[in-house]
């Protein structure tokens, strides 16, 4: 009996989600101690909302990181900023219909950028970090070019609704993201042939190729998927924020990487989950909210965020010792 119990304990400790879950619980308690309003419905709902958007970004990032070959998508923030600008420009007679068209349009837009990323990485052999960095400056430049630097877009009510109307206890946005997260995790990443190939390719491209898996396209599709999801995230962001600005999502790039890493995904590829990224996103948003609740100046906030992040990294993602 105790043996079994012990095993369960060890399994729990080994679980890659554990640090993120423990972290969020501690942060929630800490937040409650700091201010009584922290666990109010309003506050929690806004935390959930911000977490939802970062979760989307981290799903995108996780797909690319899992694809291996030092995969990393530094253009996620730029794609989100772009679709946040362009998405609301679509105006049809019915607001609901225009939101539907927006969704398709942002997915296509993001997917296109992802396709260029993927082709650059797989066919032109540019290192992912550099390829996606440069794409992010191209995409940002493109946004400025088209909008002439003046993002005067009004967001229609149907889109704004995703952050206002309730579905049961939560807002539409959070509900959609939670459902999407579970669906993508189970049916896309774990069960589908594509998801399984992605893990194999990310783990050992050579071996996957010899098995007859077309690893090039598997990896390219990971970038396309990341772009599409980031595009969708951008639309959610503008629906939440209410107004669009230039480069409004630039911070999401590195935050998404951090969220994925805190969620227990290794940067070496071939391993990882979307749900972990969501938990990582929750931790990051909780930290940010608590610091804001403490009324700190922006600089100090960023300093503390950085210190916490470094502490998490030191616990969570140290390379194995050279001497065993």
């Amino acid at each position: 009996m105790s043996q079994a119990k012990n095993n369960i304990m060890i399994e729990t400790l080994k679980n890659s989600y554990t640090p993120a879950i423990v972290g969020s619980i501690l942060l929630l308690i800490f937040g409650r101690v700091l201010s009584k309003g922290f666990l109010s419905i309003n506050n929690i709902s806004s935390i959930l909302m911000m977490t939802s958007i970062l979760t989307m970004a981290s799903i995108a990032q996780a797909a690319v990181i899992i694809s291996g070959d030092s995969g990393l998508d530094m253009s996620i923030g730029a794609i989100m900023s772009m679709t946040a600008l362009f998405g609301p420009m679509i105006v049809l007679q019915s607001e609901g219909a225009s939101v539907a068209v927006m969704v398709i349009a942002v997915i296509v837009m993001g997917g296109m950028v992802g396709l260029i990323n993927g082709i650059g990485v797989q066919f032109l052999k540019v290192v992912p970090l550099v390829m996606t960095l440069i794409m992010s400056s191209v995409v940002n430049g493109f946004s400025i070019f088209i909008t002439k630097g003046q993002p005067a877009v009004s967001v229609n009510d149907a889109l704004l609704g995703i952050s206002k109307q309730l579905v049961g206890p939560v807002r539409i946005l959070s509900a959609i993201v939670i459902i999407l997260l579970v669906l993508l995790e189970v049916f896309f990443l774990r069960k589908s042939n594509y998801g399984r190939s992605l893990f194999l390719v990310g783990n050992n491209t050579n071996a996957a190729n010899l098995c007859g898996i077309n690893s090039k396209w598997v990896i390219i599709f990971a970038y396309v998927f990341a772009g599409a999801i980031a595009g969708l995230a951008g639309l959610m962001l503008v629906g939440y924020a209410g107004t669009a600005q230039m480069n409004m999502a630039s911070s999401y790039t590195m935050l998404s990487v951090a969220a994925v890493v805190i969620g227990g995904t290794k940067l070496t590829g071939g391993k990882g989950t979307f749900i972990g990224g969501a938990l990582g996103a929750l931790v990051l948003i909780l930290i940010a909210t608590i610091l804001q609740a403490l009324n700190m100046v922006a600089g100090l906030r960023s300093l503390i965020q950085g210190v916490i992040l470094i502490a998490i990294l030191m616990v969570n993602s140290r390379a194995p010792k050279l001497r065993q």
Binding site: V261, L309, I310, L313, S317, R318, A319
Partner: peptide, 15 residues
């Protein structure tokens, strides 16, 4: 501490 350089310098850059 053997933390990944990209992540480390991202964190320190925020600091």
């Amino acid at each position: 501490m053997r933390v990944n350089p990209l992540l480390t310098t991202f964190a320190t850059s925020t600091i």
